[in-house]
């Protein structure tokens, strides 16, 4: 059952891709949707995208390209160049977070599969069915949905649905870079890539991770203890949200999840040591509360204990 589910990861730049062991992964999302200024972001480098697609295909992996969550008309020309290069290189799918980007992709590159990303806010089965009618090849329903709600949405359409299963999930797209506004790295100067180092916003004892133009969950979202249940809900792909992780961490995460997927396919629970390994890799612990209708920052383990 879970054996055929795609496991993919998100890789922002060539430096990370060429250091990653792809062995545990089926596919990779190239590019980083939160900020075009991110160091080496594939979304500004058509030649790098072409090289990455070639490399992934050589390893028999699928190559997808994500796109910015927020894309203004002035940034269109740069993105268009990259999208056309990706299509020419044989990309296996393009991910749209912005409905305008989706519209452009379907009109200009109709031969390429288009994935509908989480920022399109797919919250119900009718939205999922609508995206199917519009030609989406894959849908990422909102990460705020519970497992039961997710199952209804997945059942409401005939296209593949994907769920992030690990990593810090987005809490929103900010209108400006928080790190540049509040540090000597002023907006007028070249970006110093402060988001490469972990920064947290703390409020009354809880926290969010700031990557400048976006806030992410403070804890790493983690569904490793629930993969069998998740697979039974009809999902086609599981995503590791690893945009800000280095190759070593991506290797560890993908290995744990590959093993957990194989165990899930036989109805076997993941070992607690693996959960602890993930907890150790997370900078500020684990969360998955949304999936269970709880606060997003809560964590629910296999024994249904809320730990946070």
């Amino acid at each position: 059952m879970a054996k055929n589910i795609e496991l993919n990861a998100c890789i922002s730049n060539p430096e990370t891709l060429f250091a990653v062991d792809l062995g545990s992964l089926d596919a990779v999302y190239l590019g980083q949707p939160y900020c075009l200024k991110y160091d080496g972001n594939y979304l500004l480098d058509p030649a790098a995208v072409t090289t990455a697609v070639d490399r992934l295909h050589a390893d028999d992996k699928k190559a997808y390209l994500t796109t910015p969550a927020i894309l203004t008309d002035s940034d269109w020309p740069r993105l268009e160049t990259v999208l056309r290069a990706a299509a020419a290189a044989g990309i296996d799918g393009l991910e749209a977070h912005d409905v305008g980007v989706f519209r452009w992709m379907r009109r200009e590159l109709p031969e390429i599969a288009v994935h509908v990303g989480n920022f399109t806010n797919v919250y119900n089965e009718e939205s999922a069915a609508m995206w199917e009618r519009l030609g989406a090849a894959r849908i990422v329903p909102s990460h705020e949905l519970t497992g039961d709600e997710l199952e209804i949405v997945v059942g409401g359409c005939g296209v593949d649905c994907e769920r992030p299963v690990h990593g810090p999930l987005p809490l929103g797209m900010a209108y400006t870079c928080l790190l540049r506004r509040n540090t000597p790295d002023s907006p007028e100067k070249p970006c110093r890539q402060q988001c490469a180092e972990p920064h947290y916003l703390e409020l009354d004892g809880w926290r969010m991770r700031s990557v400048g133009t976006s806030l992410l969950s403070g804890e790493d979202y983690c569904l490793v203890e629930h993969l069998e249940d998740l697979a039974a809900r009809g999902l086609a792909a599981f995503r590791l949200e690893t945009y800000f992780d280095n190759a070593e961490k991506i290797n560890q995460l993908s290995a744990v999840y590959r093993q957990a997927l194989e165990l899930a396919s036989t109805g076997t629970a993941v070992e607690s040591s693996q959960v602890e390994l993930l907890r150790g890799l997370a900078l500020r612990g684990l969360c998955n509360g949304w999936h269970f209708g709880r606060n997003g920052r809560d964590y629910v383990g296999a024994g249904d204990a809320c730990v946070n």
Partner: peptide
């Protein structure tokens, strides 16, 4: 808002209730 409208999930991350 600090976030682009419609792209904010902070409140449910902090607290949800039945």
């Amino acid at each position: 808002c600090y976030m682009f409208d419609g792209d904010c999930y902070m409140s449910s991350y902090w607290r949800q209730k039945w």
